[in-house]
Design a protein around this nucleic acid. Structure first.
Lengths: 119, 119
DNA sequence: CTCTTTATCAACCAAATGGTTGAGGAATAG
DNA sequence: CTATTCCTCAACCATTTGGTTGATAAAGAG
């Protein structure tokens, strides 16, 4: 599945330096050297980070020395995953709220024939 | 900053088992034991996973043996981060497309006075 | 073709991660 | 209160990760 893909994407973005690279690439393509300049780690370290981003499909390059480009489509994969569960969770809360309201309505000691619960 | 928070959230979701836990918790709260049952790893391992999710703020519990609950608000943090750069990147592509169109229009050798570009 | 610049590969290291087992600490049942 | 059940802590292990330095490959400039 794209199970594995998602794992690599999330793992890639779990590192602050890599998130910063993504952030910078969102505003302009850049070469490895340019990207590495601001950080106080070696060029090789940044090269490794880019490799991780590349293998996650977040970034691409046409050739060795070509500028690195952000691959924005991958974001869809994440938002899809997130949205699904966020929505599901929110629905649950809404159902819970409704249930609580019901319970509050039936708490007042009057147990007249309104609201028979079919449990 | 919440830099660190974001790192922990992404790192937490980089593991397939943990994503599955989140997925299951989206449909119903559950105790540690219930959550652990389906996997073929030890209860302790699952307990560790839950700790990671908890420290990332993705999950919470009122007491030791209480059911684990999904903390849906954290998703906002992620979607905010993602949306920002996705949007930024898309805007760039649109500008690039516009530029390419302009270039194509001006390529045909006719260099008449239409379309002065104000750089 | 040769030289220089730019990026990657390789080997290594310390720290973090995901797993194990065994012992111990809370909650609940009796 | 005591016993049992559920969960966490501790120590350990193998693998991965993020970093280093040094050597090497590929692209451009002369």
């Amino acid at each position: 599945m794209s199970e594995d893909r998602l794992s690599r994407v999330f793992a890639a973005l779990a590192d602050p330096t890599r998130r910063d690279l993504v952030a910078r690439l969102a505003s302009a393509d850049a070469t490895v050297g340019e990207l590495a300049a601001p950080y106080d780690v070696s060029l090789q370290a940044v090269s490794k980070h880019l490799k991780v981003l590349e293998e996650a499909g977040l970034v691409s390059r046409e050739s060795r020395r070509a500028p690195v480009r952000l691959e924005a489509e991958v974001f869809d994969l994440m938002t899809k995953w997130i949205d699904r569960y966020q929505q599901q969770a929110e629905e649950r809360y809404q159902r819970l709220d409704a249930l609580l309201e019901e319970m509050q309505e039936s708490t007042p000691s009057r147990e007249s024939a309104r609201e028979q619960d079919a449990s």
